[in-house]
Design a protein around this nucleic acid. Structure first.
Lengths: 184, 184
DNA sequence: TCGTTGAGTCAACAAGTGTTGAGCGAAGTG
DNA sequence: CACTTCGCTCAACACTTGTTGACTCAACGA
């Protein structure tokens, strides 16, 4: 029987993680507005008041739950197109729920929009550096936008034509398109 | 003085249109959930109860306000890539608010998601017909996803690199990318 | 063992939501 | 002119929401 750790600190850590995990899942599925503290609490098998006590507010719960690791800088040695294809989760398994939650909320929650815009702007700047062209920034922005669109259509909207497609095949088919943007 | 038509039917038609217009604007900016009947009523300078009386429910108001004209079939004579570039509003002026409202809500409102998915699926099918290739459907889906992503990044998210770009320049830069998808 | 701490619950509040029914007053009709 | 019709408003209901404070009880330190 190792069911109950019964250590205070340990119990706290576990329930806190249970809440965060539940929050991530529901935020990812419903977005910020339609996610209720009560639903998160129920999924975490906890009283709603406890969620407030731990995180202070729904907004802070959201921020802590969907905190995305900052995007690492592009490796200058590798092909930007390949890095881009791999990075957005097209290759290295499905996207983390925190990212999905962020994307799900970005059109209707101003803070999420700001966050995503910032992240994408950064990605654009990095990519633009790796491209030498007069309109490098525009090209980079369109590359990022393409990845954004494909991810939304695939993961969040579920376009029928993409539902059955494996990430590898999507990446493969998409590659020439991105390359056309990257090169002049 | 032609300010007050004072005709009953005419008055009704006008206020109804005023409500629909206000609804479109607010739905487009805030999405379904964050849009309140009261806000729409206030913007239309009308009592909230009247909105309900005319449209029955918030959901029906949404449906009537954001009803998008069904996508016309592709003109087989024209280049699909050019049609696609022009159609999503990249060329023929900004997108109608109904479309923006639909897109704004599609990630957090299941009905809107269903509607958009259906429309995009149709678009994909049309495009796939115009492409002859083994994976025509996948290619078509990626073309539509690309347009979706660019539109979201440009109109809804406001990526800084795209904010200053004119639709013509975006279309021009994007063209080779779409063509790479359309052709083998 | 005893008092303290803190994880967790319970019940409630205050604000905002979609929605409803009664009613007012002017446009329509005879 | 009466009488009806209907566009429109007012006030309220029922419900959900985020949020709070008092309370319980087991883990903890002395």
């Amino acid at each position: 029987m190792e069911g109950t750790p019964t250590s205070r600190a340990e119990r706290r850590r576990r329930t806190e993680e249970r809440i965060l995990s539940a929050a991530r899942a529901i935020f990812a599925e419903c977005g910020f507005q339609r996610t209720t503290i009560r639903a998160v609490a129920a999924a975490a098998e906890v009283d709603p008041a406890l969620v407030m006590q731990y995180f202070g507010s729904k907004q802070e719960l959201f921020e802590q739950a969907v905190r995305i690791p900052s995007i690492p800088p592009l490796d200058g040695e590798l092909d930007p197109v390949e890095e881009l294809l791999g990075r957005i989760g097209m290759k290295t398994g499905p996207l983390p729920q925190a990212t999905l939650a962020m994307m799900r909320s970005m059109l209707t929650h101003p803070d999420a929009a700001e966050e995503v815009r910032g992240k994408l702007d950064g990605q654009v700047a990095q990519l633009a550096d790796a491209i030498d062209s007069g309109d490098a920034e525009l090209r980079a922005a369109l590359m990022v936008s393409t990845m954004l669109g494909v991810t939304i259509a695939h993961q969040l909207l579920g376009l029928t034509a993409l539902r059955g497609a494996s990430p590898e095949r999507i990446a493969e088919t998409l590659r020439p398109s991105l390359r056309a943007l990257a090169d002049g």
